[in-house]
Computed example of a mutant assay.
Amino acid sequence: MSARIDAHQHFWRYTAADYPWMEAGMDALRRDRLPDEALPLLDSAGIDACIAVQARASEAENTFLLGLARQYPRIAAVVGWVDLFAADAGGRLAYWRDQPRFAGVRHLLQDDADVAATLADARFARGMRAVQAQSLVYDILVRGPAQLAPVAAFCARHDRHWLVLDHLGKPAIDGGDEHQWRRCLRELAALPHVLCKVSGLVTEVRAARLDASAIQRHLDAVLDAFGPDRLLFGSDWPVCLLRADYAVVAALVRDWAASLSGDEQARLWGGNAARCYGVHPRGEE
């Protein structure tokens, strides 16, 4: 049986200066969140390993996460950060690529004033070419269909290695224009080198109550677009705690995926992540 992998977790030692995006009202996040707290949650959900994803736009984040990965072998891979606009991005990427378990990078597109301008920037394109030349995965983080709209053309230009859409592109679940989001999703899914993380769902629900049927409707849409070979489970812990605990997040996906075949479920719960990020979980500490 293949390992079950949570493809999207965060870890941090909290300081306000390092995490300005943790706004007032995010008290559940504004404290240390480390593997000793997370690993029992993975155990309860039957998850063998996880991929740690950057939460700071700093190479210090790479050092921090890789240090945790050395200490906790169940952190099977790290998606870090490098300034892709920098003239020396290729050299910096090569340095990190040589570090065990460094598997990808992410730029926080959702925070850019003009996502389309970033994606069309010649400096960013040069950085992306270096990412793919190093066989590193690039995680795409955008918020909603307006930011998602230019992503398909960008991904078509960068097709030498895997690209992964985080959090379904952050649609406004139960409160947004699903038609536009579905159209953008289908355009992106037409590109065979693009995968999608089934993650970050609960925090995108606009209604006061989590409606499982609304979440499942969006999961049905990504399954129809990407198919079971290009979907990856991710909890987005601890950010998910703004709306639900780990067990609830895992159960929402588990219940939805119950109609998939055994092989399809195995790919969703780890096989696709292992193939994309090139990870081989080493088991318990």
Rank of each mutant, 00 (worst) to 15 (best):
R33T: 06
P192A: 02
V194R: 02
A125E: 12
Q134V: 13
R143S: 15
M22F: 10
L119K: 04
L165A: 08
C50I: 01
F11Y: 13
L42H: 05
L242I: 02
L109G: 06
P171D: 05
D177N: 06
R31S: 12
A87L: 15
V79C: 12
A149M: 05
R186M: 11
Q132A: 07
A153T: 07
L148W: 06
D83A: 07
H218M: 15
D159G: 06
W269R: 00
A212Q: 11
D43P: 05
V279F: 01
P171N: 01
D224A: 13
R56V: 04
L141V: 11
R209E: 14
L41N: 01
G176A: 04
R56P: 09
D27V: 11
R206F: 08
T63K: 13
E187Q: 13
L219P: 05
V151F: 00
V239T: 08
A156Q: 15
G262C: 11
L210R: 00
P20V: 07
L108P: 14
W96N: 10
E284G: 06
H158Q: 05
A28H: 08
D229Y: 01
R129A: 10
C240L: 08
G270V: 01
A125C: 09
A17L: 08
D88C: 14
V194Y: 13
A214V: 02
G169S: 04
F64K: 08
R74V: 02
G176Y: 02
L39N: 06
F85K: 07
E204I: 07
L210G: 07
L195I: 03
T203H: 04
A225D: 07
A86C: 13
D98G: 11
A45Q: 05
A69R: 06
Q216A: 14
R143K: 14
D211K: 14
E37S: 14
W269P: 03
V279A: 02
W181E: 06
L41R: 13
A251F: 03
H107L: 15
G127Q: 08
L84R: 11
L68N: 13
R143A: 12
V249Y: 04
R230I: 03
R101Q: 13
L84G: 03
M22S: 11
L219K: 07
F102E: 09
S259M: 12
L165M: 14
D27H: 15
A120N: 10
R217Q: 10
L185Y: 03
L163Q: 09
D48M: 00
Y277F: 15
A146P: 04
G169V: 00
A149L: 02
G176T: 01
I140G: 01
G271P: 05
G227E: 13
G90N: 10
A225R: 11
A76L: 01
A221F: 03
V53W: 02
Q54G: 07
G91L: 11
D236T: 00
V131E: 03
P40N: 10
C276H: 07
A156V: 00
A190M: 15
R209T: 09
